[in-house]
Amino acid sequence: MMRAVLLALAAVAVLALPSCKREKRETRASTVPAEQPRQLALSTNHAGSAQAPPMESAGKRYEESAYQITEGKRLYTWFNCNGCHANGGGDSGPPLMDDKWIYGGEIQNIYATIQQGRPNGMPSFRGRIPDHQIWQVSAYVRSMGRNVRMDIAPSRNDDMHPRASENRLPLAPPVAGGSTPPSAQHPQ
């Protein structure tokens, strides 16, 4: 009987372990690779034989941390992302809360978009926003697009509410190369 109880406890402990990471307040970005974009590959397809470490592993840590995503949510308004993308519904920039992604909807794609900038108005933030914070914002954008687990996604903010908070949206994986949203079809 005691053994069964102990086994059950051990099983619960193993299942619960990811929570340690999920909630960690990792304030120092020391383990994040320095800003060396050329060493990070966007996909596993590449010319030549040089193996670049995939970006996914770097991004994974951010989109699986409730703390990092919430930091990203704060920075999203601090850095005026909402100036063009509004609260995710899009304005002069494309919407971020739907499942259509012009330049890819994985976190490393979003990271690259923010860092490098994109035609038709998306500026490059390389050197403007530290790497660590770009990842945070990217992770938050993922949560807007219903791409992170509901128990990690941020809840509502203490302000006026144009839409349901990220943790109330059901999971929906991004559609690669989905149809182009109207805002991108008619660039200003």
């Binding site: 307040r25 304030t27 120092r28 970005a29 320095a34 704060r74 530290p130 660590h132």
Partner: peptide, 16 residues
């Protein structure tokens, strides 16, 4: 360069 070791959690990021 390293505000996070002085004031961990502060909103000032580390800058290289």
């Amino acid at each position: 360069t390293d505000p996070q070791s002085i004031k961990p959690g502060a909103n000032m990021p580390m800058t290289q």
